[in-house]
Amino acid sequence: MNLIFLGPPGAGKGTQAGRVETAHGLVQLSTGDMLRAAVAAGTEIGKQAKEIMERGDLVPDEVVVKIISDRIEEKDCANGFILDGFPRTTGQAEALDKMLEEKGLKLNAVIEIRVDDSILVDRIRTRAAETGGDRADDNEETLKKRLEVYHAQTAPLIPYYESQGKLLVVDGMSAIDDVTRDIEDKIGLATA
């Protein structure tokens, strides 16, 4: 089973992906973690990525897709994977589709965790108050900028995957356990 988790920053994608990973024996793949691992391993694509990052440039889509391509061939991904944080644009989604097709793989579902922006702002305020603002991104201004980027660049993935019949929407404003149950129910439908 191969999944993508979509949603705005603070929607709970990482939390929910971790729960599904444990329950289904899938591997949660974070592009940031994969980039760092490829650089640390000194792979050819890792060397390319390191050079780009050291210049302060964004790693191009084709390099990220190649890193994902290499990673999903590892044994621990035999049961499937969850992409969290990728794709972020329609161009990345198209490149991912092409790469999976070349491998004879497919996405089973794209889970959109839908949360109102105002709720996300409240969550950040609460988390910042609880943690004393330990995290650099625990502030309203940073969140609002990240939400603008999400709506401009990533939200267009919703109709993209909806047109493919792969989009499954869950209410991310429910309690964490309820969101997990809803995702589990929807995954069951997607794989039935």
Rank of each mutant, 00 (worst) to 15 (best):
K106E: 12
L107P: 01
L143M: 10
R125F: 03
D57T: 13
V39F: 14
I67D: 00
A49V: 06
G42D: 07
G133Q: 08
D76R: 09
G85C: 07
K144R: 15
A129E: 04
K66T: 13
F81Y: 08
N139D: 05
R36E: 09
N79R: 13
E62R: 15
P87L: 12
I111M: 15
G46N: 02
E130R: 13
S118W: 10
A129W: 07
D117P: 10
A128T: 01
E102N: 14
I68H: 00
A95P: 09
P60Q: 08
T43V: 06
L120S: 02
K145L: 06
S69H: 07
R146L: 06
S118Y: 12
G132N: 07
G25M: 05
G56I: 06
G56Q: 07
R146I: 01
E102F: 05
S69K: 04
A95G: 12
K75H: 13
L35M: 10
G104R: 00
S118R: 15
V39W: 06
I113C: 07
D134G: 14
Q48F: 01
D70L: 03
D57V: 09
S30W: 00
S30G: 01
N79V: 10
D84W: 03
N108M: 02
K144I: 12
G42P: 08
V110I: 06
Q48A: 14
L83K: 05
A41P: 00
V63N: 10
T142D: 01
G133N: 12
R36Q: 11
E101I: 08
D33H: 04
G56R: 09
E73M: 14
S30K: 00
A109V: 06
N139R: 11
L96C: 05
A41C: 05
I72P: 01
G56F: 05
G56A: 10
G104Q: 01
L96T: 05
E130P: 01
